[in-house]
């Protein structure tokens, strides 16, 4: 449901799945990056602080860092993506999610943008 997806100013999307949040980058971000050729994901079990660099994503043009949106623990990463980084361009909002993290309080998500707010933000 749309209410369950939130967006950061760093062009990440955060989707609530059970008691975890799934994190990926938006279509807009994927478009800006261009063809993704390399992804380095964090190790499962890593404890992260908000704004830690957790994912390295490289296109033909340049390298970008993806920051942890909140404090928490990385509990699962999308390993197959590292073998097929081009998927980020094809399905950034679906199959090309990066990691799932556990955060203390899901209500922290309220601080992020709704889909409508994000659309305004990028326009």
């Amino acid at each position: 449901m749309a209410a369950d997806i939130k967006f950061t100013e760093e062009h990440e999307w955060l989707r609530v799945e059970d008691d975890l949040i799934v994190v990926g980058i938006t279509e807009h971000a994927a478009e800006q990056l261009g063809d993704v050729v390399f992804i380095e994901l964090p190790e499962e079990g890593t404890t992260v602080s908000k704004d830690d660099e957790v994912v390295v994503i490289e296109s033909v043009k340049a390298a970008s860092d993806i920051l942890a949106p909140l404090d928490g623990e990385i509990v699962e990463v999308n390993d197959p993506l590292t073998e097929d980084p081009g998927k980020v361009g094809e399905d950034p909002m679906g199959d090309a999610w990066f990691f799932k993290m556990k955060i203390e309080d899901l209500s922290a998500l309220d601080d992020f943008m709704s889909e409508a707010e994000y659309k305004d933000f990028i326009s």
Binding site: G34, D35, V60, K61
Partner: peptide, 12 residues
């Protein structure tokens, strides 16, 4: 122009 809509990879 750094790239066109085709993108760097396909242009290459």
């Amino acid at each position: 122009p750094v790239q066109y809509p085709m993108g760097v990879m396909k242009e290459h």
